[in-house]
């Protein structure tokens, strides 16, 4: 799967709704060149950009008490918006 741009894959993963740490973990598993903390943060930043562009919607949030991702920070659950679906369908999502 690791042959398409990261943001394409993020949109794909969010089709059914996912937490940001799950997305980051999944991407880091799939893309061998994106290991380490720097890339972890930059993948998370990609998610934030997608959300601010209106393609992902933040449907749930909780404080990261146990430090699953970053202790004390917010965790977000994202789902693809209608606009995101349209944008994704001409880029990457074949099945919507």
């Amino acid at each position: 799967m690791a042959n398409r741009p990261v943001k394409f894959r993020i949109l794909e993963l969010c089709n059914s709704g996912k937490w940001n740490y799950e997305i980051v973990e999944q991407i880091q598993k799939e893309y061998p060149d994106l290991k380490g903390n720097f890339h972890r943060d930059s993948i998370n930043f990609d998610i934030i950009e997608l959300a601010s562009g209106g393609m992902l919607e933040d449907v749930e949030a909780k404080v990261d008490e146990e430090g699953i991702y970053k202790k004390g920070f917010l965790l977000h659950k994202y789902v693809l918006t209608d606009f995101g679906r349209i944008r994704a369908s001409d880029a990457c999502l074949m099945y919507v």
């Binding site: 042959n3 398409r4 741009p5 990261v6 394409f8 893309y31 060149d33 994106l34 720097f38 890339h39 930059s42 001409d90 880029a91 990457c92």
Partner: peptide, 18 residues
């Protein structure tokens, strides 16, 4: 420095959508 050449190659290949 940012280690983004891999992503560049992936993006470049997506000519039509991206």
């Amino acid at each position: 420095v940012l280690g983004k050449f891999g992503e560049m190659k992936r993006t470049l290949k997506e000519f039509h959508p991206c």
